[in-house]
Design a protein around this nucleic acid. Sequence first.
DNA 1: CACGAGACCTGTTCGC
DNA 2: TGCGAACAGGTCTCGT
Length: 273
Amino acid sequence: MPELPEVESTANRLRDGRPPEPALLGKTIARAEVYWPRTVATPAPRAFRQRIAGQKVMAIGRRAKFIVITLSQDTLIIHLRMSGDVLVAKEAKPAGRFTRLALWFTDGWQLAFDDARKFGRMWLVDDPDSVLGGLGPEPLDAALTPATFHALLAARGRALKPLLLDQAFIAGIGNIYADESLHLARLHPLTRANSLTKDQAAALLKAIRKVLRAGIRRNGASIDWVYRGGGYQNEFRVYQRTDEPCMNCGTPVRRITVGQRGTHFCPTCQPTP
DNA sequence: CACGAGACCTGTTCGC
DNA sequence: TGCGAACAGGTCTCGT
């Protein structure tokens, strides 16, 4: 489901609250229940329940597509993968059909992790780097300059689309924002990374930032039942617009498969390399 | 290192 | 209406 903008929006919602949901910041976890054991990547579910009880929520943020919840002792890291969602509800709310894990706070609220496809994962670790250590740079971090980005691209012979999806290369971009970025930058998804000029690399970075920021502004994209509340789907340039006219030139948007992912592009604006 | 295929999972939508 | 195929905001692992 979620990419950087959706995870950012979700992390903000948990941290600050979004009526009627209260903020989780400052709450203390009373207990946890694990309904689908594989949801907890580490430690084992039993140890997870014991360790997390009594810990207080000190901070909530995002790194790549991970929600990072800093607790008084450990760090709770959540990845929603394709269909995960976190819901804050009153204690009385029973576990739903898709609830894989729940945390109850001492003040009577609960955090439910729902995930139809069971791909989502959680880690409770004392060193967040043990989970997040291998990630590439944050695309919105000003420390990533156009020159640096060009150098990173120049070192890779891969096609742009799979490279943008590689979280070790750059963090947080998924299938939607990869396609949207490449269209905005007018680059074909199969263009080799090391063939980009300095200007093209700068344009790609700029496009990535523009679509991610627009996504965040709209609270992410909601394209089916999985993630709700976003509005960015109304601004899609190519994603899920197969055969519809390109907004630049009117050419029908084409859909191909790249690295087993549906890939949308305009054959005119993004000519074959 | 690059790349494709298969796993992990279940729900919705599409085509006949 | 029914039924199978295709498809889905992700990532890991294995073989070439």
